[in-house]
Nucleic acid binder design. Structure first.
Lengths: 352, 352
DNA sequence: TTGAAAGCGCTACCAT
DNA sequence: ATGGTAGCGCTTTCAA
């Protein structure tokens, strides 16, 4: 591998001049010199050594991405989008799976320092775990996805940006849709352990129910998944919750699933018990994974504008890497309803 | 961030000594000195700068992982396994999506050099694209997943390891299963563009058919996906192929899908047309994505021993990084049948 | 318009 | 058993 000195020698200039062209400081340079340097780079198939650049500048064009599990399609989609924008900015993505375990998170953050990575996008259950604050204090720039914490502003501004779907609105939208379509006995199916985004969705569920005088006909039905990060587990849980729903009396005619994976399991369990969807029970998910469109019937869902969210996340990350003094901000995105066929066609209610 | 000099000063020793403890060369060292150095590292919360280490040694504890699309669940599972083994070896994973485009592949490989990454695991359609050979020539260690090329040994040993499922066997196994269960009119549903692994699967399909005298009752049915890397596209293609299958005369009673995503789309399309699965037509996939277990009916499939394969891949990668002179090797893994409910129960054929 | 030289944090060789 | 020091490939002042 040729280095900067080889290029300089061949072009019969100094390394400084080569460095200047590497850094686009060519304004003062004689075009002829520039051409000679360019040519000699080509001849030698020169690739600047980023490691060396980095040792000097303290910058790597890498960002970290910390997710619970890449096998979860929601996070796979997120990862793809992030990779897209990263590439557009000449960055590469260093991936880590945490399985929602604090020690994995912490180890990843430490490795980011070691590798000179300055910015990380984080998806984690509990952003208030101390290692995040520690990392921020040591200068790591972080953008959080989907765990907006502003609810407890008591603790002051968190040390990272937050980009989330408006989960209250998502829960509300899903529930509202069921009600519009004629459902009157509502259930919200969820995993027991509460993350911020989960409780927001539940909140939205009740908001919608109350708005229609259905507060006492709206219930949360929950169960515990073995491991709370995988789609497989969520789907299993959904299947288990189907039994609980069938036992409920009166039986719900509309169910909001906290996420699509759970909703899909729920539908499978319900159908297995002879329930027709949506004729007997309507089901709607939240989050929209590709799978939602592939099951029978295709499942309605509520989806975040992922592309836009990732644009903002990356923009914030890169600008705050440049200017760490910038205060973190929070961004909330409005979700959208995707109608497929898991919710009953219902009464074309005139007006309302 | 404290550096090696700070530690040395505080411990009142030279940087050399600190470097020695960093590199476990403490055998000759007075325990007392060692203790002082250790303590001073703790005091300063010292983290050695890998960038500097790397500039010196030329080693990063990062590996590259190049996949067509992380959104494809097969590759997501692969990624998780690789991350698992990488972590166990104190490595981190740099991820790249290629969408099967040569320029993305090439750009990624170049970035690996720039970032000092010495080893990459590659999933790609055409491993004979010249940038792979170029990269190998320049010292990049690569291990290929699932595109065994040994069929054309004419060109000599490829410059990278290959770890694959035995795709001929996979195709054979799937087909054999259909035949055992009583299917007599066979179809193999696939995307038109041929990769090595695809043609191997087709080969296995015909091997099994011939072995049972069904050669003239076995046909390949193909179509073109818009983009040939995504599961969504594969599923769509499967749906489209359902129509072709229904038009075929005589109509097949057993279909092997080249991969699970296509198989799932196929089942959806077939069912939509009123065909019962498996009573009217049996379907079996290849590759086993988690989704296969979630559709109705759960789809039978043929699966590679992913965990073992990844163990070998990582082992080869890391040892060849240590010792680049080592000749690349090829590894073939035998797939296994997973029976679910998309294949007819069939005649419990006595004997055979 | 171009070049010389210091130094980023670490390793490894050679001294002592 | 410990220390001095050159140098990895680059950037960045400062000088010419």
């Amino acid at each position: 591998m040729a280095n900067i000195r080889d290029v300089a020698n061949r072009a019969e200039v100094s390394v400084s001049s080569v460095s200047n062209v590497l850094n686009n400081r060519t304004d003062q340079m004689r075009p002829e010199t520039l051409a000679r340097i360019r040519q000699s780079m080509l001849d030698l198939n020169y690739q600047p050594n980023r490691i060396a650049q980095q040792l000097k500048t303290g910058q790597t064009r890498m960002i970290g991405l910390l997710v619970p599990s890449i096998v979860n399609p929601s996070f796979a989609m997120l990862t793809r989008e992030i990779d897209r924008v990263a590439k557009a900015n000449q960055y590469r993505v260093l991936l880590g799976n945490t399985y929602r375990q604090a020690d994995e998170e912490q180890a990843f953050l430490e490795d980011m320092f070691a590798h000179g990575v300055k910015g990380v996008i984080v998806v984690a259950t509990a952003m208030d775990r101390p290692h995040f604050a520690d990392a921020a204090r040591q200068g790591l720039v972080m953008v959080n996805y989907d765990s907006l914490m502003s609810s407890d502003l008591s603790k002051g501004q968190p040390p990272f940006d937050s980009v989330s779907m408006d989960n209250v609105e998502a829960g509300r939208l899903a529930t509202e849709h069921l009600i519009q379509r004629g459902c009157r006995q509502l259930a919200f199916a969820t995993e027991s352990s509460l993350t911020i985004s989960r409780s927001h969705k539940i909140e939205g569920f009740f908001v919608a129910a109350k708005a229609h005088g259905l507060a006492d006909r709206a219930h949360v039905i929950e169960g515990t998944a073995e491991v709370a990060y995988g789609d497989a587990e969520m789907t299993e849980l959904g299947r288990a919750l189907a039994a609980k729903i069938l036992q409920a009396s009166p039986m719900p005619d509309g169910v909001v699933a906290i996420n699509d994976a759970l909703g899909i399991g729920l539908m499978a369990g319900l159908r297995q018990a002879g329930v027709r969807i949506p004729q007997d029970i309507s089901v709607i998910g939240i989050d929209n994974i590709p799978l939602a469109d592939l099951v029978q019937p295709p499942m309605s869902s509520v989806i975040p504008p992922l592309g836009e969210m990732v644009n903002i996340m990356m923009h914030r990350l890169l600008t705050r890497i440049e200017n760490p003094a910038l205060a973190p901000e929070e961004f909330l995105f409005t979700p959208r309803l995707i109608c497929r066929q898991s919710v009953i066609a219902g009464e074309p209610s005139p007006g309302e």
